[in-house]
Design a binder for these strands. Sequence first.
DNA 1: CAGAGATGTTGCATTGACTGCACTATTGCA
DNA 2: TGCAATAGTGCAGTCAATGCAACATCTCTG
Lengths: 212, 212
Amino acid sequence: MGRVSQSHALPEPDPGPAQARGLRAQKKHQTRLAMHRAALELVVEKGLSGVTAQMIAERAGVSTRTFFNHWATKESAILGVVGDEGIRAVASLREKLEEMEARDALRAVLREGIANIPVDPGLRDLKKHVMAEEPSLQLISSGNLHAMQNELVDVIEEALDGEYARDHAVILVQVSFALTRSAFAISMRRGIDLVRAFDQVIELYDSGEFNR
Amino acid sequence: MGRVSQSHALPEPDPGPAQARGLRAQKKHQTRLAMHRAALELVVEKGLSGVTAQMIAERAGVSTRTFFNHWATKESAILGVVGDEGIRAVASLREKLEEMEARDALRAVLREGIANIPVDPGLRDLKKHVMAEEPSLQLISSGNLHAMQNELVDVIEEALDGEYARDHAVILVQVSFALTRSAFAISMRRGIDLVRAFDQVIELYDSGEFNR
DNA sequence: CAGAGATGTTGCATTGACTGCACTATTGCA
DNA sequence: TGCAATAGTGCAGTCAATGCAACATCTCTG
């Protein structure tokens, strides 16, 4: 009965994709996946606005309350957001900044980031389809990126000099994220791998067509 | 919380800032402004999550229902969203594309767009303060831009040639919006005019620091 | 200037996202 | 086996948002 509820019990991030330590963690991850899958399927069937949290919970075989114990919002269940990527990205950026230019470091981090997006193979196509159909989800998805932007700006600012260090950092981050978003769009449209699209975008961009 | 309403009977945009035709339209605009002001004040006082639509309506002297007749969401009342900018932007872009390069045309349109953001002088500082305090509003704000992005991409694609016309267009639009967002951030931080910030960002960007 | 139609405002009822709380059910571990 | 930790659940409640129907207030026309 010792309900020592700590912080506002926000929906915790997912520990690991597959190799869960205990039986307990395994089950949890399983439940989570079931909800994510159910969410995707239902959105395909009925469209985003035609799906309620209750439906998703029901199909996944859990209570509505449990659903919201796992996901902060209906949309995050659909997107299958993990959460702690921001922290890793910042750490990764710090390391890279010691051996390369800010621009390249940032690009590398973003490339890493999108390469590590965990997608259950069975859900890959489903998710792609949903994302293509529901633009507002794209927006939310890039909104998740938004959260880490400021932190990245801070880190990069430290690595730059001059009066306009922060302005530089801001622009650099914004533009880099813009390229990432472009990669998302192009990947979706052409049906190609996201990382591949990212590389193509970088190449196109660096070709200089955009600076005159 | 995170509602992403896809309203059908959308609350109509505001006809004109000041010189409203009839008495009716005048009153309407007045009501609208009262709500916008109330929303901003309350957010300053209690924070975004501490404010309910009811509170805003009450302070503005209207019913809750009326509140939602004017604004699609609580947040749009705070931001004072007008709405029909997208249409104007697209038309404007079409014109400009006939006399200048895609990049410059797009920049010009964006510059126009931010220059025309209607802000009641009395609310300017209030809004700036609120935007600085509540990052999630910034996100929503740029989300509004998001809607017109695809249309702009379409228009620009027509103006470009080659196999990669659309990819070019996507990247161009994304990057240009990134610069605009940067201008927002910098304008906020330095407390300078948005258009001025935009010009500075463009200058900084074109200086070439970002392409090597 | 009267009356009809258009438009703004409101109350009411309802749906659906989310949250806090108290409680039960499992699981991990000593 | 016994107990602490943690996942899952039911319930009640808040708040955003919407449809609907009644009502109030212009606006415009004959």
